[in-house]
């Protein structure tokens, strides 16, 4: 008798997974860099192209790296929030100007306000590839040791900022070299 129930049981199991699958987003790819060192790079700054910015200069600080471009429509929607964030002076935000014409980028910032301490020109997108960027915008949270602790895929929303990014940033800022803070400790980041 029991063996005739096997097909039913197997089917119900599959259906359970399918139900769970409905809640998932198949297009969101988690970054393999979480809790790994941020790839180091050195790039010219958007506003003073002769000066270089090196990522290792940021060691000892918690910072955000926001990947953006003037051709990116979604960046337009998140930008006001980033401008607000920069006024709050909680955490320095750096921009990675991804595959963009520097002139367009500067114009864009002039129109929408500049949220960045500095924007870095990634003209051919090589640093983007190093960071596993697959769409713009993306935002990385990097800790004092230069470890990537979180990545926001797509525009940063007010709720993502308040529930995940900012609490995580505060914890990271309080942490010392001996205490490791992971994003799993912040509820909103799950």
């Amino acid at each position: 008798m029991l063996r005739y129930l096997v097909p039913l049981i197997v089917f119900l199991g599959v259906a359970g997974f399918l139900l769970k699958g409905l809640e998932l987003n198949p297009r969101e790819v988690p970054s393999p860099f979480i809790d790994k060192p941020a790839p180091s790079f050195s790039l010219p700054k958007l506003h003073e192209p002769e000066a270089q910015f090196a990522s290792k200069d940021m060691l000892g600080q918690v910072w955000l790296l926001n990947v953006w471009a003037s051709w990116c429509v979604a960046c337009r929607s998140e930008h006001p929030l980033l401008v607000q964030l920069s006024h709050a002076n909680i955490v320095p935000v750096y921009g990675l100007n991804y595959k963009d014409e520097p002139d367009d980028a500067r114009n864009w910032l002039r129109q929408l306000g500049d949220a960045y301490v500095s924007s870095l020109i990634d003209y051919d997108g090589k640093v983007g590839i190093d960071y596993g960027v697959y769409g713009v915008p993306e935002t990385f949270v990097i800790d004092k040791q230069g470890i990537i602790r979180h990545k926001v895929i797509g525009p940063v929303t007010p709720s993502a900022l308040d529930n995940c990014v900012l609490p995580l940033v505060r914890k990271l800022q309080q942490a010392t070299a001996q205490t490791v803070v992971k994003r799993t400790e912040v509820e909103g980041c799950a």
Binding site: M1, Y4, L5, P7, L8, F11, L12, A15
Partner: peptide, 10 residues
């Protein structure tokens, strides 16, 4: 649909 059919089968 499938659940009922397989139950009927069993």
């Amino acid at each position: 649909t499938i659940g009922t059919s397989l139950a009927l089968f069993a």
